[in-house]
Computed example of a mutant assay.
Amino acid sequence: MDFELSDEQNLLKDSVERFVKDNYSAEARAKLVETDSGFSRDHWKKMAELGWLGLPFSESVGGFGGTAIETMIMMESMGRGLVLEPFLTTVVMGGGLVAEAGSEAQIEAIIPEVIEGNMLLAFAYAEPQSRFDLHDVETTATKSGDGYILNGHKSVVYHGTTADKIIVSARTSGNARDKDGISLFIVDNNVAGLSRRDYRTVDGQRAADILFNNVKVGADALLGAEGKAYPVIEKIADRTTAALCAEAVGVMQAAIDITNGYIKERKQFGTPIGKFQVLQHRMVDMHMEAEQAKSMSDMVAMKLELDDVEDCRKSIAAAKAKIGQGAKFVGEQSIQLHGGMGMTDEYSIGHYFKRLMTIEMLFGNTDYHFKRYAAMA
């Protein structure tokens, strides 16, 4: 695919890569994983100063009016370092929902704070029974006076531990799997009736299971039109999936570089194992998977800026499925070529493998998106 970046986009790419190089050695990342929040507030402030947190938002609210291509550039570069800061959850997901569905007052109150690095967001969409279906929502929002009362259980809310506000999908009407009747609400993380179980995910990030027990919110907590949130959720899910595809490309490329360096140094019978032809062939296969993934990620980023929603959605399903396959292959081969060393926490390759396997599952795994693509095709 002929895909050339502009001068400004190349500057952005260089800037993110420099940030990763300066701040995300394997040792530095391991220390961040062990902290209470699981990421660095100083890094987050630095991202704000560099303008990255305002990248996808319109200039009218202090953003830079960036496109999906700029988001792809950032996610791919951050994937190389397994960056832990909540760019995906706060900017792409939470910020995207507010910018897309919010009232003028909600946008003015939240987006500038996100851009300045003063507010973190999380999106609580998944439930224990929902698997990958965004419309499978049993959490309810019942009208009470001039507000609503939320009850339900949201699972695996990434960065729900540290978010200042949580955007919650809840059912205001209809049956549990209806696409109509779903609404979005902006809820403070410390509101009465909300309880969390915080934990570390397998890839070293933070998530929470959140229970809503008669949580009262005002009418101003409603994000967008009541009962009409599903199209907005689907749109932001598509953009998030595209961002995850870009991140997977960066993770795969870094895993290949690490593995290539290892087999050049690791000796067997007095010879670097990288000279064995069978391992050279395996590295070529890994490179081919990464290049295919890169092409599909680039294609999706470009199609997100076009008006053909159905074609874009079909491309996203194809990309997530194919990149999921490639991520699994590259991750497994990287571990195998490292031998037993690859399974230890001391070696970085295991952490790249874990992140690839997590990305493969987020917003629909490989099988799910193959079926989704087949249904649309």
Rank of each mutant, 00 (worst) to 15 (best):
E17H: 14
G81P: 03
T201P: 04
R196N: 06
D203R: 05
R239D: 12
K264S: 13
V278D: 14
L356P: 09
E138Q: 13
I335V: 10
L53M: 05
R355V: 02
Q106F: 04
E116L: 14
H43V: 03
V249H: 10
V16C: 06
Q333C: 11
K228G: 02
V156R: 12
V202E: 14
S348P: 01
T71W: 04
V98T: 05
E8D: 15
W52S: 05
A321W: 05
M119V: 14
A374E: 15
D198E: 12
Y352L: 09
K154F: 11
Q333F: 03
G94D: 09
D308Q: 10
Y373S: 06
G274E: 08
D164M: 13
T366H: 03
S348A: 14
H135E: 10
E34F: 00
T35K: 02
L11D: 15
V20R: 03
N175T: 12
N213Q: 15
G326A: 14
P86G: 04
L194M: 15
F87H: 00
D146M: 10
R177W: 08
V61C: 12
I107R: 10
E49T: 13
E332S: 15
M357G: 06
L337C: 07
K46Y: 09
R282P: 03
L97C: 08
G340H: 06
T71F: 08
V137G: 10
A124G: 15
L304Y: 08
E289M: 13
V300I: 10
I110K: 06
V61K: 12
S60P: 00
D209E: 14
Y230I: 10
L184F: 05
H159W: 06
K303V: 07
L150A: 07
A101C: 13
A318I: 15
K322Q: 15
M288T: 15
R29A: 08
S183W: 01
T366A: 09
R41D: 14
L11Q: 15
M47S: 01
S195W: 04
S6R: 06
G63K: 09
Q333L: 00
R266G: 01
M288F: 11
K45M: 13
S40K: 00
L120K: 10
V91S: 07
A122F: 01
R282I: 15
H153C: 02
V16W: 06
E27C: 05
G65H: 05
A170G: 08
V232W: 04
A207R: 06
I349S: 01
K235E: 15
